[in-house]
Amino acid sequence: MDISGADFIRGLALLGAGLAMGLGAIGPGVGEGFAAGKACEAIGRKPEEAGLLTRTMLVGQAVSESTGIYSLVIALLLLFVV
């Protein structure tokens, strides 16, 4: 069984897509959990500000999610374009 160059590139692209998605999901996971934990602390201290805190937390999480989204885009490029 011999592997041609195109098969080799395809296999490595799939491996790279998996690695990009798996490693890229660590950062946003930690960051969003940190933001949610801090928001919980703040709501515990000031329950009447819960609406404002939740809104700010969601926007902050959506921004910190973007690094994970970049790795998703890279993974999609590797899967469907390479």
Partner: peptide, 16 residues
């Protein structure tokens, strides 16, 4: 780049 890829990635990822 970051603002456009954020929106695109979220919607495309959800669709996939």
């Amino acid at each position: 780049v970051s603002i456009s890829f954020r929106l695109y990635g979220n919607i495309m990822g959800g669709a996939i």
